[in-house]
Simulated assay, not measured.
Amino acid sequence: MYELTTIEDTVRIPPSSFDNPFKETAIEILNRKYVGKTDKKLGILVMVTDILEHNVGQVVIGDGSAFYHVTFKALFFKPVLHEVVDGEVMEVTEFGAFIRIGPIDGLVHVSQVTDDFITYDQKRGALVAKETPKSLEKPDFVRARIVAVSIKGKTTKDCKIGLTMRQPGLGRFEWIDEEKSKKK
C-alpha cells in the first residue's frame, strides 16, 4: 500500500546550490538521503514529493552551507499482510521466483506458485508445472498475495516479503484470464 506522509528534518544546502530554486534543490537532496530507506511503521521511502514549509536558513561558521528546517511530503510503500499485489518476475531460481512489487522484491516459493507439481527448467530459467501447461519465467506479470512481511534494518536489502499465488484469482495474468474464460 502506498501512503503520503508528512515528515520534518533539517536539510543542508551547499553554497554551490544557492542560486538554484530552493524547493527543487531541497527535494533532490532529501531524495538522495532517504530513497530506499526503511522505517518499521511507515515502510520504504519511495520519493520526497514536496516541501511544505521551511524556515530561514542558518549558515554555520566554517561550513558555509545553509541549514533549513523543512516539513516535507514523502511517498512510502508499506507491504501489508494479505494484500493482493501485481508484479513482474525479476528472477527465477530452483526454489522460487522473485517478484518486483513496487520498490522491493518478494519471493514466491516454488511450493506457492500453483497447486500442480513444479520443476525448475534450468535451460529456460523457468518454473514448469508437471500436469498443466503452466510455466513462470522472467519477465512474466503476476498477481500474488502477501503472506509474510519482515521489515528490518535500514534498507530494502534487510526486508523480506513472502508471496503466494495458490489461491483463486492469483498467478500469472494469462492463468487468471484462462480461469475467467472457463467460468463463462
Rank of each mutant, 00 (worst) to 15 (best):
Y2L: 04
E3T: 10
I7S: 06
I7Q: 14
I7F: 13
E8A: 05
R12L: 02
I13L: 12
I13A: 03
P15D: 03
N20V: 04
N20G: 00
F22K: 11
T25L: 10
A26E: 01
A26W: 10
I27M: 08
E28W: 10
R32G: 07
T38C: 12
D39C: 03
L42G: 00
L42R: 15
G43Y: 02
G43R: 11
D50G: 04
D50P: 08
D50M: 01
I51V: 14
E53F: 11
H54R: 09
G57K: 10
V59I: 15
I61A: 11
I61K: 14
D63I: 06
G64M: 09
G64Y: 09
S65E: 01
S65V: 01
S65N: 00
A66L: 10
V70M: 02
K73S: 11
P79Y: 08
P79V: 07
V80K: 15
L81K: 14
E83T: 05
V85N: 00
M90S: 14
E91Q: 13
E91D: 09
E94P: 13
E94G: 13
E94M: 12
F95V: 08
G96W: 11
G96M: 05
G96P: 06
G96R: 07
A97N: 02
F98E: 08
R100H: 07
I101D: 01
I101F: 14
G102Q: 10
P103V: 02
P103F: 01
V108D: 02
H109K: 12
H109G: 03
V110N: 01
V110Y: 13
V110D: 01
Q112S: 04
T114S: 11
D115Q: 07
D116K: 11
I118S: 00
T119W: 11
Y120Q: 04
Q122I: 11
R124H: 07
G125H: 03
V128G: 02
A129D: 04
K130N: 11
E131F: 08
E131G: 00
S135Y: 15
L136G: 06
L136N: 03
P139K: 13
V142E: 05
V142K: 06
R143I: 04
I146T: 05
V147E: 12
A148C: 00
V149W: 09
S150K: 15
S150W: 05
S150N: 14
S150E: 13
T155I: 01
K160H: 14
K160M: 10
I161H: 09
I161D: 04
I161N: 03
M165I: 06
G171M: 08
I176M: 07
S181C: 00
K182I: 10
K183H: 05
K184D: 06
